[in-house]
Design a binder for these strands. Sequence first.
DNA 1: ACGTTGACGTACC
DNA 2: AGGTACGCCAACG
Length: 107
Amino acid sequence: MTKPHAHRPSTDFETRVYRIVSAIPAGRVMTYGQVAARIGRPAAARAVGQALHRNPDPPRIPCHRVVDARGGLSQSFAFGGKTAQARLLRAEGVRIRAGRVYPSSPR
DNA sequence: ACGTTGACGTACC
DNA sequence: AGGTACGCCAACG
C-alpha cells in the first residue's frame, strides 16, 4: 500500500527536509543552505525554505531551528514572525540579538 | 506545460 | 556596512 490517500502529498524532497530538520537537537540551529546541502542539493536552500513554509507538522518539525546564512530569523515565521521564532530559540538557550542568532551559535 | 512565487545565497555596487 | 541584483530549486495555479 503505497499511500492510500495522503492528504499531504509530500515529495521526496520535502520528506528529506522534514526528516533532517526533525533531527536538529534543541539549542542548535541549522541554515537553509546546510539542510539543502545535506539533501544533496546545495543550491536548493530556497526550496528548503518553501518546504518549511509548508511544514505539515509544526510541533513535530522544529522549523524554528532553521535560520538563514547570517543567522537571521524568518520574517514570515508562522504567527508572530521573528518574535515567535526568537522566543522559541531563547527558550532553548540560543542567544538572539537583533533578530539573529549569535555568529558562534552551535550549528 | 509554462510562468509565478518564495521562511535562500552570493556577488556586486 | 548596507542595499540591490541575479541565480537556484521545487511547489503551485
